[in-house]
Design a protein around this nucleic acid. Structure first.
Lengths: 258, 258
DNA sequence: GATTTTTGCGCTCAATTGCCAGCATTGGTT
DNA sequence: AACCAATGCTGGCAATTGAGCGCAAAAATC
């Protein structure tokens, strides 16, 4: 038996059982315990096992599996909070559009208990999250896979979006600024968001407070083009006034559910 | 014996058995171990093997890196083998369509080292697998997420597919039968495969040998409509004759690469 | 027939494994 | 809490086996 084969089998056993014992493995493979320890040592170096006295245990680094998830998850609490507010506005039977943001994914997690949701998204993570969901209608925009990301972009996606009209579109952005409006860091993402907003009755922008007074390269739309902005804490008086005059609703606290 | 011939036989053995030993192969082919090592070196460069002390193992991170969807992986060896044959037919710069089958996913894993591939797929797993790939163009068909699955279906997907024309479409099926042709278990999947085939110059059907003489509910197309069938072992004389008269190419062994 | 590719040989280097001695950890006992 | 025996761990060493490299011969290709 090849050394690597033994190592792989140990890994498989480790994954299945959660733990392995040096003594067992030594007997099972007919090698000395030192050899087993050296195998476990390698697995530990690869981040797949954690050695302990007498054996090793599994290390559950599901995050490490899908490299995409490694991206920096900034402001998780803010995004969760924003997502919970948005989630509380969604009702059974709603028709939604969601972009490919972390916040959108959190929104999904908050509304998993709702019935008969129909949604259109360009996020592959959302599709994955919902692959076991029954009773919903989940439509992917299709399009070109963004390099190094899990979102679908391009004119095919835009055209697909244009075929649908929904109650509410939920998008995020990179910056919101009174001079430049709502902006994103690249054209393709911005175009998708434009398309979402074009085809939704209610346009919801999810932005954590760090995005205020920032602007990025590509304009998505004017501030007055969105219907509702959801953030995680009370913006400055300037912004309250600004949004009010632009006739944009603002939420930074949970809404009482019906 | 030609060097390439030996290399292909080693590959076949590797895929079927999961591993090969340098010492065995050296004895079996009557060449020195260096020669075998050089063969394995080439296979490793092509991404088809992983050299290790004493031999080589199949690139079998496949089982390890799809931890969530631990769906029953039937006939893994057959599918791997079929995928390697198909993979060897794909060249840098090719335009492909791939359906949402396990075999298609394996094909992807076998061609990760190719350059500038453009592909269209309705498989979410393939999108995931390729989310970190740079230099390729990866297009999702979009469409409705299949309940309990990771594929995209529906007329939106079909329409997206109809916008593209590719060199080769690679699909699987549930059954192939001389009376009923090529069949699948549900209409939506079948429609997608029809669309793939409609828009491809070369239509490749990947079927493990258990699918022969089976038929399912929905017809995809006639046997004579496909250009190439790839399977993992020599079908019966009846089928050889049948496919020959239908003018369908058949492969069940690795093809010599250029 | 010339050129490129493949193969074999001899050599050195590297990897794997087992063994052993000494040290650390554990769990139970006083 | 201190102690002790059992079990496990670590690091060094040696033996075995495989790997890598350069070069020359053989084979295939043009």
């Amino acid at each position: 038996m090849l050394a690597i084969e033994r190592k792989n089998q140990i890994l498989a056993k480790l994954i299945m059982d959660g733990k392995v014992l040096v003594s067992d493995l030594s007997r099972e493979y007919g090698v000395t315990e030192e050899t087993i320890r050296r195998d476990l040592e390698k697995l530990e170096k690869e981040g797949l096992a954690k050695k302990t006295y007498g054996g090793a245990v599994r290390v559950d680094n599901l995050n490490a599996d899908i490299p995409f998830y490694v991206r920096k998850q900034t402001n998780v609490e803010s995004k969760q909070y924003i997502a919970s507010i948005i989630g509380s506005m969604i009702n059974d039977g709603d028709y939604l559009m969601l972009d490919s943001s972390t916040t959108a994914l959190y929104v999904i997690k908050h509304i998993l208990h709702k019935k008969k949701i129909t949604l259109i998204t360009n996020s592959i993570e959302i599709l994955l999250e919902l692959s076991n969901k029954s009773g919903w209608t989940i439509i992917s925009t299709g399009g070109t896979l963004k390099e190094g990301g899990l979102s679908l972009l391009g004119y095919q996606a835009e055209r697909m979006i244009s075929n649908f009209h929904v109650d509410m579109a939920i998008c995020s952005c990179k910056g919101i600024d009174s001079a430049n409006g709502i902006t994103d860091s690249n054209e393709q993402d911005a175009e998708i968001k434009k398309a979402f907003f074009r085809n939704a009755k209610k346009r919801v922008l999810a932005v954590d407070s760090t995005k205020f007074d920032k602007s990025s390269f590509v304009k998505i739309c004017d501030i007055s083009d969105v219907d509702l902005i959801v953030t995680e804490k009370r913006p400055s008086d300037f912004w309250l006034e600004n949004l009010k005059s632009a006739n944009v609703e603002l939420l930074y606290e949970p809404v009482p559910e019906e």
